[in-house]
């Protein structure tokens, strides 16, 4: 570009810019994915290195603090329960090893189902138009105004004990609306675009236009929407669990918090009981948020900053 030799700072800047050329390598995305993978890894490696049975057996001393702390009864933490125990003598480490992946699983499954419904309905509405479009649009709009927690509380109380999958299915019924609307809007605008007209001129079938011409361009939106609905699903799931309405026998982060509140952990200063699951949930949400921001940069190059 210039004849003058480049200085060290300029070279460093060029290097930084080069790294920037690949939008998928942006730090937000890497950090976000790292945090989530960390939680999954905790679940997988934990099952191997730690005894997951400790979740069920209340064999340890009750209400032990994490190592390095003392509880109100002046009992110090012990290495056999490094993160302490809860009011029933269950090991906290084992609880999060089993519970955290469970919470994530509900979120992922629910939004996977929700997204599939959303993609199907969104494409149908955008493509078919007319009555179908009106029905789907009105349905989605009505569903958006209904607070999901309210309905789910009623459902879950009626069902009594549910499995994780069942809960994911119920939540999925409330996360399909926004992807539906988003995809419908994108399909409508893409239908007018030159390349779809060109494909029509090329004698392309409707399914070719949908899945080969439109879908690839929707990918960034789908990813973003997926992550957003994972967040919503986890919030809903945890909300239900904290109310004591989730699965009764399967440990999840929300259920642990529910039990802690129920047993008066806040008054007794048993901070590790509710604090550790809350911390993990916070990590999960920060991870999801970072992924979402990272994906935004991928799909919207204008957000990429120079410095």
């Amino acid at each position: 570009m210039t004849d003058a030799p480049i200085t060290r700072s300029e070279r460093r800047q060029q290097k930084r810019l080069k790294r920037f050329d690949n939008p998928w390598m942006n730090p937000k995305l890497i950090w976000g994915a790292g945090l989530l993978l960390g939680i999954i890894a905790l679940g997988l490696i934990g099952r191997v290195l730690w005894d997951p049975e400790l979740v069920f057996t209340g064999s340890a001393t009750l209400k032990l603090p994490p190592v390095g702390f003392e509880n109100l009864r002046k009992q110090p933490g012990v290495w056999s329960n490094p993160l302490g125990t809860d009011g029933g003598g269950r090991d906290m480490l084992a609880l999060i090893i089993i519970g955290a992946p469970n919470t994530l699983f509900v979120g992922l499954l629910a939004s996977l189902i929700g997204m599939s419904i959303g993609i199907f309905l969104g494409f149908s509405a955008g493509f078919v138009g007319g009555r179908t479009d009106d029905t789907i649009r009105v349905l989605a709009d009505v569903m958006i105004t209904i607070p999901p927690l309210l309905i789910l509380v009623v459902f879950q109380s009626a069902f009594g004990d549910v499995t994780l999958t069942m809960m994911a299915l119920l939540i999925a019924g409330f996360v399909w609306q926004s992807p539906t609307r988003l995809i419908r809007a994108q399909v409508l605008s893409m239908k007018q675009s030159g390349y779809v007209q060109m494909a029509q001129l090329s004698g392309a079938s409707t399914s070719h236009i949908m899945f080969r011409e439109m879908m690839p361009n929707l990918v960034p939106y789908l990813f973003g929407s997926f992550i957003a609905s994972v967040t919503t699903s986890i919030v809903t799931a945890v909300g239900l669990e904290v109310l004591g309405l989730g699965p009764q026998r399967i440990p999840t982060l929300g259920r642990t918090i529910y039990e802690a509140i129920n047993a008066g952990a806040l008054i007794q200063n048993l901070w590790w009981w509710w604090g550790i699951p809350t911390l993990l949930l916070a990590t999960m949400f920060i991870g999801l948020l970072l992924i979402n921001l990272g994906l935004d940069e991928v799909s919207n190059p204008r957000l990429r900053k120079l410095s």
């Binding site: 675009s193 390349y195 001129l201």
Partner: peptide, 15 residues
């Protein structure tokens, strides 16, 4: 066949 006005939108940006 046709040639349209806007050459910018006639190609699918994905391919």
């Amino acid at each position: 066949q046709a040639v349209f006005q806007d050459p910018y939108s006639c190609f699918n940006p994905f391919y």
